[in-house]
Structure formats: structure tokens, C-alpha cells
């Protein structure tokens, strides 16, 4: 079985600095593997363990992304394909079309895995776009995934229900974090990851089809929050009574 896993080198939001004018300092921000993409890699490895084959990591991003790809290789993926592009200026559709072009070039694949949404910009759009572009079945928010013969059986977690669906291979799926517990690579695996093949494709040469006007970011500013920060002290009974009093005074609690 050939398994493609799409992994994003995402800005680490915990490290992101805001300048004195309230603007995020994106250039020079540290990046790491998008949180839930670890679950996608883990699921790919789990499928490989059950069905043999190989796991190939696909990333669209700057060459710094190799750091993240090596982490996926250390977890156990077999090789990586990096499509170099300036991800700060492309929208979800361009990202998906670059991924689709690279996946087609290295294909065919039986299963293509993504996560439900990236930890930095969480659009949740790249996975279904990929499904559509590859002409494959797509199923999102998988919390369980099994392949039997030429059919994938997926448990999808929706807002108020669990849906079981079946789809013919090849299938594109996005996973939720509950699907598995991602492994940590060992030191030896981390050292060996450097020797695994990592191909680089130039995004400009993977000319994606179809011209359109991309979605773009107009401006960014730090989230403002003005809260009172009143700490209420005393025994549980005293503190609770003071809190209830304060909330009534605020007019947010009807008696």
C-alpha cells in the first residue's frame, strides 16, 4: 500500500512574538510540525504496519520545512517530497494544487492523509480540496480508519453524531487528534532520518492548472483583551458568595 501524508511546517504560535505596534513578527518566527499532522503521520505508519508498503511525506513550504519533514521521517516515514514555495503568500487552493501536483508526480497512492486543520491557520480546506483535485473519494474528520481490499471504512466525528462511511480507494482523509497517540522517535531514529531520501521540487515549476484570484491577508493585529483581573479570596463559601454578588452587580446573572 502506498500512503501519502501531507505535513505542514507551521508557525509555533506559542513562540510567536508581537511587536510594539501590535503586529505579529512572522518573518523569523519559529515553525514546527503542525500539531495534528503528527496524528496523520502516525495513522500512515499504522496503515503501513498493517498492509506493508511505504509512507511518503509531502510538504509545501520554505526549505526550513526540512526540519519538520525529518521529524516525520524519524517517526518512521520512508521518504519525503518538499515543494518549495513561499507559504506566507499562497492561499489554501494554491497549497492544495501544489500538493496535488507533487502527489500525482510521485503516485499513484492508495491513501492520502492530512489532519483536520493546521495549528497555525486552521482553515480545514486543504484536505477536501486535495480530494477534489485528485478526483479521489474524500472523507474528513476521521477518528478511525480501516482499509479492507479496495475499500476504506472510516468513522467520521461530526458535531452531533458519528458517521460511518465507506469509500473506494484511492481515498483522501483528514484525521482528528483522537484517532491515535503519535509516537516519539528514538534518538537512533532521529539520527537515521537524515539519511532517508528527501526530494525537492520547485513550486514554480509545478505549474498548477487554472488561473484564479487568490484569497489574501490584508492586515494582521494582535488580539486585544481588556479584562478586569479581579482575584476573589476567602474560604470557598466566602469566595463563591462574593463572586455571585459581583456577577449580579455586573447584571449578567438573573436572580
Amino acid at each position: 500500500m502506498r500512503i501519502a501524508v501531507c505535513v505542514k511546517h507551521a508557525v509555533d504560535e506559542t513562540e510567536l512574538k508581537i511587536d510594539s505596534g501590535g503586529k505579529p513578527l512572522l518573518s523569523g518566527a519559529t515553525s514546527r510540525m503542525s500539531t495534528f499532522d503528527k496524528n496523520a503521520v502516525e495513522e500512515g505508519l499504522r496503515l503501513k504496519a498493517a498492509h506493508q508498503g511505504e509512507v511518503v511525506i509531502f510538504t509545501v513550504g520554505p526549505s526550513d520545512s526540512k526540519k519538520t519533514m525529518k521529524e516525520a521521517l524519524a517517526m518512521g516515514a520512508d521518504k519525503g517530497v518538499l515543494v518549495t514555495a513561499d507559504t506566507t503568500s499562497i492561499d489554501t487552493m494554491r497549497t492544495a494544487s501544489l500538493l496535488a501536483a507533487a502527489i500525482k508526480k510521485a503516485g499513484p497512492f492508495d491513501v492520502v492523509l492530512c489532519s483536520e486543520g493546521s495549528s497555525d491557520t486552521y482553515s480545514g480546506q486543504v484536505p477536501p480540496m486535495l480530494g477534489e483535485m485528485l478526483g479521489a473519494a474524500f472523507t474528513g474528520y476521521a477518528r478511525k480508519l480501516e482499509v479492507n481490499g479496495q475499500t476504506a471504512r472510516v468513522e467520521r466525528s461530526l458535531e452531533d453524531s458519528l458517521e460511518v462511511v465507506e469509500a473506494p480507494l484511492p481515498v483522501v482523509a483528514s484525521v482528528v487528534s483522537e484517532i491515535n497517540e503519535p509516537r516519539y522517535p528514538t534518538l537512533i531514529q532521529i539520527m537515521q532520518a537524515g539519511k532517508k531520501p528527501l526530494e525537492e521540487l520547485n513550486g514554480d515549476q509545478l505549474q498548477p492548472a487554472g488561473a484564479y484570484r487568490q484569497a489574501s491577508v490584508v492586515s494582521m493585529s494582535a488580539q486585544q483583551s481588556a479584562r478586569k483581573h479581579v482575584m476573589i479570596e476567602g474560604s470557598p463559601d466566602e469566595a463563591a458568595a462574593k463572586l455571585v454578588e459581583a456577577l449580579i452587580r455586573e447584571g449578567v446573572l438573573s436572580k
Binding site: V11, E13, T14, L16, I18, P24, D91, S119, D120, T121, Y122, R213, Q214, A215, S216, V217, V218, S219, M220, S221, A222, Q223
Partner: peptide
């Protein structure tokens, strides 16, 4: 964006 640290204006 960025887990809610940032508010972005976007357009298309």
C-alpha cells in the same frame, strides 16, 4: 490566526 493570538483581515 495563530491560535487566536492574531486577528487578520482577509479578502478575495
Amino acid at each position: 490566526a495563530f491560535a487566536g493570538k492574531v486577528v487578520a483581515k482577509v479578502s478575495c
